[in-house]
Each structure stands twice: as structure tokens, then as C-alpha cells.
Design a protein around this nucleic acid. Structure first.
Length: 426
RNA sequence: GGAGGGAUGCCGGAGUGGUUGAACGGGGCGGUCUCGAAAACCGUUGUACCCUUCGCGGGUACCGAGGGUUCGAAUCCCUCUCCCUCCGCCA
């Protein structure tokens, strides 16, 4: 959510920002500005009625005490009239505020000035490439063939038990998952100093709204209607909401958490696209990094978070590239997003394994997460950031495709061996 | 699932219808004192929104959430949420 005060001062700037993000219809901006001024005029009216009403109530009390019953009764009549006026005003105010809120929730975040303006993924900025793309003197197998050959993942039984996109990881496949999770968490905690949390994997509607899943991406979440809960699509949701409705001390910033969680995504509308093997699942594992940063230092935090994620790819010796998403390809709530993509040797394409974003105050304003300035001034909104470090399935896909040998065996990267306790899968 | 007890400011904790944004204590901040510190003493200490000649200022709301009673509610009534205790069930 953006600040209506700021929008009112310069609507054109926000109109342009919306268009850059690919929204043709910017009418919601004008609606918000109109509703805001209507809201203010109603508030003014209602408040002065209440002020008078408070006066009258005191008068009535005094008159009764003084035994002047007739005058008191007359004053009560005025009180009744005021009460009606207040009620009418409040009803109207409630409607206007609800409409304003709805409008504000529909306005996307503004992209940072360093973000390239563009219409689609074609216009993303390729910022950095690292590592060497492996060359084979045999035809490398796609990961789904390798997984099957070694019995690492059972897609068929997963489909029977839950549905397509809910695999069983088996034996060394399961062990590899656990090793990666442990490795990622250890790096975040020991090397980078994040505080580890294990979050709820279901959240209520307030939390889903706080990070921007609602109302924008409702179709992508599994919903437990009976209990009003949503299965989390990422640990970002519960972990960012951890400080919802709180005021933290400035000295505590940046606050940094890492969390492992399974993630659940309906992937509605993406059937038939990239669905083979581990490319796209309904349930997958991920370690997420979340930061709450001082507004003046959130872009430093973004770079450090990005580096924390990239370091893992380097340690796993996976060739990867870094993109700066253009305005048209980035999400509704983000100000700036880096995507990290690893090379998949058999599929011969780049797979997104991490998305690192600064949301500035967009989420914080929805969640009322503020900090108290050290000088004791009024509370200000923090900036929130998050990034995957990392999403497992595509890491596993790239890892086994890139590290396969002609005999079908798979080498485990050095850094991971202390966790897997095996060097290769043969 | 059943029975009972709670929810007040940064914290503890008063307050059962009329200037109570809220006693008292603690903490924090500022000051006096001190070479410095402690102690003591004095002062101060929430958030949001509206109006403003933007300067100080004025106002409204908020005592878990929402509704109701009343001229007037932290205080009475209803609903909900959360927490605690006991019983049941259970990983």
C-alpha cells in the first residue's frame, strides 16, 4: 500500500509508475484521491458534531446535579439530534473508508529509479553471470530421467496420494533435500548472522493481505475455508508478518530472519508449462531470508541479501546469472527485484531459483510495521525485504543435471558433502 | 469439545456509569546534586486522524475486536478473538 498523502500531491508521478508496471487503467488513482477528500470532509463534520455532543453531555450532567430537570430534558433533545447526525456520518464514513481501502490495495508499488522500464521479461536487465556452463562429450540426461534411474523422487505415488506436483522424495533424494535445507540454514545463521525461525505454514487473511497475497494473488494459494486459513506460498508471508502491528527500536534495525518452510502454490493458469520433473510443483521446500531495514539503508540491505543468496550458488558451484527485473515483469508489491537463475544443463535453459526484492514501505504500511527513531520522534514505516536462499527443487534439478557423468552417476558438490554424507550418487 | 477465570499505557497494576488518556509503582528520557557515578529530589513520558493564519495551537477517536444500552461507558449488555486453569480427547 502506498501513502495517499503522497499520491495526492503528485498523482501524475504515480500514474506513470502504474503504466510502467503494465497497468493501462489508472482510474483507481483518481478514485483514491476523490475518496480521500470525501473522507476528510466527513471526518471534519462528524468530529465537530461529536465535540458538541460531548459538551451537551457535560451540560446535562451539570443540570441534573443542579436539579434543573426541565433544562436537562431540553438538552437531551439536542443530544438526540446530534446522535442521529453522528450516526449518519459514521455510516457514510465507514463506506467511504472501505472503498478507499479497497482502492489503495489495488494500487501497485512504484518501481525504484534504478529499475529499467520495460514491458516484459524480454526487457529484464542481465546484470551478471557467474561460473562456467558445463560442456559434455555425451548427451546429458534431464533431471527427471536421472531422478527415476536412481529412485530419488517418486512422482507417480505422490500423484496417487496427493496429486500431480506433490512428489515423494525417497532415500538419498530425501537425504539430499534435508542436506540442502540444513546447509542453507547454516550459511544464513553462521555465516550471515540471520536469526533462524520456524514459522506457521498456515496464515490468516490479515497476514496474507499484509504481504500482498490478498487480494492480488488469491488464486495462487490453497485455502482452508472451514478455518479461514491459507497454506503459505512462501515463508515470506508468516515471517514478514511476525512484526505486524509493532513498533521496533531503530537500534534493532536491520532485523534479519531466515526460515525454512514448505511452500504451497496452486499454480493456477500455468498447467502444461514447465511441468516436467521438478520445474514446477504444488509443494516445494525453500529457505527464505527476510529483513526489516531502516528506510535510508534498505538498498544496502537489498544488495547484502542478494549476496547472501548468490554465495550459496557459488558454494554449490552452480553457473548462474543475475537479472534486474524490468518494471513490466516485476511483481505488484515490489520496488526492485533481482532474479537469480541457474543453468540447467540438459534442459539447456536458465531456471529461476531465487527472487530477491525490496518492498520499501509497501508491505510495512499494510502491516503497520514501524520503528521508533532513536531521537524519540514519531514512528516511521520500516522497509521490508526478502529473498529465497534458496528454492530447492530447481537447485536439485540443475545440480544433478550439471554434475552427471556419462555412466549416469551424479557428483555431489564439495560444500554439500558434510551434509549428505555421500560424495556421489551412483 | 465441556466448565471456569482473564485481556487496561513500555512493564506491573488500580479503576464497576459523569473532565479518567486513565491512580500508584517500575522503566525510559531531561534536569538538580556530584570530580564522575550511585542514591535522592524535580519534571517529562502513547498512537492515529481532522482543523489550523503552519506558529504555538485546537479537536476527535482509541483501556483485546465489533455491535448495543445511556444525555454520558474503561466501567452495564451481546457477539467474536486470544490467553490462563481444570476435565475430555490426542501427536
Amino acid at each position: 500500500m502506498l501513502d495517499i498523502q503522497t499520491i495526492r500531491q503528485d498523482p501524475d508521478r504515480f500514474r506513470l509508475a502504474m503504466r510502467n508496471k503494465g497497468y493501462r487503467d489508472t482510474g483507481v488513482l483518481d478514485r483514491a484521491v476523490d475518496l480521500d477528500s470525501e473522507r476528510k470532509s466527513i471526518v471534519t463534520t462528524v468530529q465537530s458534531a461529536r465535540e458538541r455532543s460531548n459538551e451537551v453531555a457535560r451540560e446535562v450532567g451539570a443540570l441534573f446535579k443542579a436539579g434543573r430537570r426541565d433544562e436537562a430534558e431540553r438538552a437531551k433533545e439536542e443530544a438526540a439530534r446530534l446522535k442521529d447526525a453522528i450516526r449518519v456520518g459514521e455510516d457514510r464514513l465507514r463506506e467511504v473508508e472501505a472503498s478507499l481501502e479497497a482502492a489503495m490495495l489495488d494500487i501497485p508499488n512504484v518501481a525504484h529509479e534504478s529499475v529499467p522500464v520495460g514491458a516484459s521479461s524480454e526487457d529484464n536487465l542481465m546484470a551478471f553471470t557467474n561460473g562456467v556452463i558445463p560442456v559434455f562429450d555425451f548427451r546429458p540426461l534431464p533431471h527427471w530421467d536421472l531422478l527415476e534411474r536412481h529412485g530419488l523422487v517418486d512422482f507417480g505415488r505422490g500423484a496417487k496420494v496427493a496429486g500431480a506436483g506433490f512428489p515423494f522424495y525417497v532415500g538419498r533424494g530425501a537425504r539430499l533435500q534435508r542436506a540442502l535445507i540444513q546447509f542453507f540454514l547454516d550459511m544464513a545463521v553462521s555465516a550471515a548472522g540471520y536469526t533462524e525461525v520456524e514459522p506457521p505454514i498456515m496464515v490468516n487473511a490479515d497476514s496474507a493481505r499484509g504481504t500482498g497475497q490478498l487480494p492480488d494473488k488469491e488464486d495462487q494459494m490453497y485455502e482452508m475455508t472451514r478455518d479461514g486459513l491459507y497454506a503459505i506460498p512462501t515463508a515470506e508471508v508468516p515471517v514478514t508478518n511476525l512484526h505486524r502491528d509493532e513498533i521496533v527500536a531503530e537500534a534493532d534495525l536491520p532485523i534479519r530472519y531466515c526460515a525454512y518452510s514448505p511452500c504451497f502454490r496452486r499454480e493456477a493458469g500455468s498447467y502444461g508449462k514447465d511441468v516436467r520433473g521438478l520445474n514446477r510443483l504444488h509443494q516445494f521446500d525453500k529457505v527464505e531470508l527476510v529483513q526489516f531495514a531502516h528506510p535510508d539503508r534498505s538498498y544496502e540491505a537489498l544488495e547484502s541479501l542478494r549476496e547472501d543468496a548468490e554465495r550459496l550458488l557459488q558454494l554449490l558451484a552452480l553457473p548462474y546469472r543475475r537479472l534486474v527485473l524490468c518494471t513490466g515483469d516485476m511483481g505488484f508489491a515490489q520496488s526492485k527485484t533481482y532474479d537469480l537463475e541457474v543453468w540447467s544443463a540438459a534442459q539447456e535453459r536458465w531456471l529461476e531459483v531465487s527472487s530477491v526484492s525490496n518492498y520499501e514501505a509497501f508491505q510495512a504500511r499494510r502491516m503497520w510495521i514501524r520503528y521508533r527513531p532513536a531521537d524519540g520522534g514519531r514512528p516511521e514505516f520500516v522497509h521490508t525485504l526478502n529473498g529465497s536462499a534458496l528454492a530447492l527443487p530447481r537447485i536439485v534439478a540443475a545440480l544433478i543435471e550439471n554434475n552427471q557423468r556419462e555412466d549416469g552417476s551424479i557428483d555431489i558438490p564439495e560444500a554439500l558433502r558434510p551434509y549428505t554424507r555421500f560424495d556421489r550418487i551412483a
